[in-house]
């Protein structure tokens, strides 16, 4: 099954830039709610339900903390509700706090999706074109990390059996052993890279991602939706008074476009699921 995750990284990164741009800049509860629903629906398809419920409860707590704390830090606004220690607590600050909390949690959920979709391979692919040396360093580092941890564990275990040191001292000793080994290996690795012709010009890079018509189609759709969203005049005023932007046709189109944009991963995933089911029943 071809899932959203396996699309071309160029499309995926542009999609995330579109969605995050609006989520971060707009600060409008309607966009934020639709973005949140889009991110959550995708998470529900990919992750285990139990984990999602747990994280929803956790983020609900964050939401409440941010929303309730905002009036304590911000005393702007016209409608005074009550006073705490001579500080005004205003309705506007409360509303702002709620929207702020929504924005924080919404972006967190989009980054959750980002972490699900963007593994290191995709990042290296994106970097590889712009900055091949950095991409090389990143891919080497990603290989070294599990290696080092493995070496550390084996040294640590043998130290544990041989010496009766304090845990912290043993950790530091083992870490030092890892450093020595890795630095000497670095010299050997670089010599071997030179021997195999790393310094020669006209090297080529392998990548397994192809830019398919599906990617192009989705890229165009999301770009159009993004532009339609940006056109809307939907900025809210929070201080000194809460003003709701008028519901003109343009704004309605804008809201609807962002709703569709944030549901693209979900729709794609469902569509592919249905196709998969039909093709299985034919066989």
């Amino acid at each position: 099954m071809n899932s959203f995750k396996n699309l071309n990284p160029y499309f995926l990164i542009s999609y995330f830039i579109f969605v995050l741009f609006i989520s971060i800049f707009s600060f409008n509860p309607i966009y934020l709610t639709s973005g949140m629903l889009g991110a959550l629906s995708y998470c529900f398809l990919i992750l285990e339900k139990k984990n999602i419920l747990k994280s929803i409860i956790f983020y609900l707590l964050i939401f409440l903390a941010v929303a309730v704390l905002n009036p304590l830090f911000s005393h702007n606004g016209k409608t005074v509700l009550f006073f705490i220690n001579d500080n005004r607590v205003t309705l506007e600050a409360l509303i702002y706090g709620a929207v702020l909390a929504l924005a924080v949690v919404e972006v967190i959920f989009w980054f959750k999706c980002f972490n699900l979709i963007f593994d290191s391979e995709k990042i290296i692919f994106l970097f590889g074109k712009i900055s091949p040396k950095t991409a090389l360093v990143i891919s080497m580092t990603l290989r070294f990390i599990p290696n080092f941890i493995k070496t550390f564990r084996s040294v640590n275990t043998s130290q544990k059996l041989l010496l009766k040191n304090h845990r912290l001292k043993r950790y530091l000793n083992s870490f030092s052993a890892v450093i020595t080994q890795s630095m000497e290996n670095a010299v050997i690795t670089s010599d071997s890279m030179n021997a195999r012709g790393y310094l020669l010009k006209h090297k080529t890079f392998y990548s397994r991602f192809k830019f398919t018509p599906t990617d192009l189609f989705l890229l165009i759709i999301s770009a159009v939706l993004f532009i339609l969203t940006v056109i809307g005049r939907t900025s809210f005023t929070y201080y000194p008074e809460f003003i709701f932007p008028d519901l003109s046709l343009l704004n309605c189109i804008s809201y609807f476009s962002f709703l569709v944009l944030s549901f693209i991963p979900f729709i794609f995933e469902i569509k592919e699921g249905i196709i998969w089911k039909f093709s299985v029943s034919k066989i």
């Binding site: 040396k133 090389l136 080497m140 070294f144 870490f175 890795s182 630095m183 670095a186 010299v187 890279m193």
Partner: peptide, 25 residues
């Protein structure tokens, strides 16, 4: 030089691996 590139990867990997290794503390 290739040495610098590999050494950069090693230093980065060491500090990132350190974040795991000392995770119990």
């Amino acid at each position: 030089s290739t040495r610098k590139i590999v050494l950069l990867a090693v230093m980065t990997a060491l500090s990132a691996a350190g974040r795991f290794i000392f995770a119990p503390v």
